[in-house]
């Protein structure tokens, strides 16, 4: 009951927030994106111990696939390239159809890529995996910047949000909230199943997991697919929200989004369910404060923040709480006499 009450309250707050504070709708949309970032990174990095700097690859992939599907469904390629944003807006129904098909296509692409790339990259361990994925994210951005079909280095404009679907900010805020909520609930369910224990085992000692006969490759690939699936959808939505895709700065932004997702998960507590959500919230608020008050130096300050968090607070909020109050997390000695009482 307690849990249901808690979730209901959070849901009400999240649904009411953009209506109560309309000027913060876009901020809230970004907050939900950050939550998706942190949750999906944590599924692979925190729960499975595969610290990836390249998850942003799926985000960028989703962004491009969604945008291209939307463009090619309703516009002429030549015309779109030259006239970009000044074309007529689509009827709302077409916009929604294009967007849904685009998001579906991007999710499928992401899962396929995760399977193909995972077959090689997920066999790397530890820091080799981390640096290989770093290379993957940046290489993808640089390659995208050279492909004319998706606008090359000068970027790609996404279809303009049509009239008749309500306010743009509110629409995307709720869309991203829904995505964050679904991501959270799916991961919550996965972590309580056999899958959750298996990826935890891989994190703690992959050699042991192999020696015990776990299907490690299968579990790892599935975890990466789940992560990529939600990131690609998030990417597709963000492309439409921002309205313009730059290959290096918005789509495959390894040095910003790619690092932020890691940082948010660590800040909240790696390998916990609520940690990434908490971390994303704290980080997003901090970042907005930096943006408002540090004019131009905010990125320098973010670099410093990364170092400070990693060096002085690597266990994160939830990790700290767990070490401080282990009882609350159920880590206690039970006397044999309790056995009868609990059963």
């Amino acid at each position: 009951m307690n849990v249901i009450l808690k979730y209901t309250l959070i849901a009400i707050a999240a649904l009411a927030a953009p209506l109560l504070f309309p000027e913060y709708q876009i901020q809230l949309a970004w907050l939900w994106l950050m939550v998706v970032f942190a949750l999906t990174w944590d599924a692979v990095g925190g729960q499975m111990g595969y610290n990836s700097f390249g998850n942003v690859f799926y985000f960028g992939l989703g962004m491009y696939v969604t945008a291209v599907v939307q463009r090619d469904l309703y516009y002429d390629f030549e015309e779109y390239e030259t006239l970009a944003g000044s074309l007529d807006t689509l009827p709302p129904a077409d916009y929604l159809t294009g967007m849904s098909l685009g998001l579906a296509a991007s999710a499928v692409c992401a899962v396929l890529c995760a399977i193909v790339l995972g077959s090689g990259i997920l066999r790397l361990r530890g820091h080799y995996f981390a640096i290989c994925t770093l290379g993957l994210g940046i290489a993808a951005g640089e390659i995208a910047a050279g492909i004319d079909y998706i606008g090359a280095g000068s970027g790609l404009v996404t279809p303009v949000f049509p009239d008749g679907l309500g306010e743009k900010g509110l629409f995307f805020c709720y869309l991203l909230l829904a995505l964050a909520a679904v991501t959270f609930l799916v991961l919550r369910w996965l972590y309580t199943s056999r899958f959750g224990l298996a990826i935890n085992a891989i994190r703690d000692d992959e050699d042991k997991a192999e020696a015990m006969g776990l299907h490690t490759t299968r579990y790892k690939t599935i975890a990466w697919c789940v992560s990529g699936f939600f990131l690609a959808i998030a990417g597709g939505i963000m492309g439409d929200l921002i309205g313009f895709i730059d290959p290096v700065d918005t789509a495959f932004a390894g040095a910003t989004f790619g690092v932020w997702m890691v940082l948010m998960a660590i800040l909240g507590g790696k390998g916990t369910l609520w940690g990434p959500v908490i971390g994303a919230t704290i980080f997003h608020v901090t970042q907005e404060i930096f943006w408002t008050f540090l004019f131009g130096w905010q990125r320098v300050a973010l670099g410093a923040l990364i170092v400070i968090i990693v060096v002085f607070f690597p266990q994160g909020v939830m990790g700290f709480a767990r070490a401080r109050w282990p009882d609350r997390f159920g880590h206690r000695v039970e006397s044999v006499a309790d056995k009868g009482a609990t059963q």
């Binding site: 610290n51 940082l263 660590i266 990364i306 990693v310």
Partner: peptide, 13 residues
């Protein structure tokens, strides 16, 4: 991984 991330932070800084 902690040192990778810390030096990555220095790099961004």
């Amino acid at each position: 991984f902690i040192s990778i991330l810390a030096t990555f932070g220095i790099s961004i800084l």
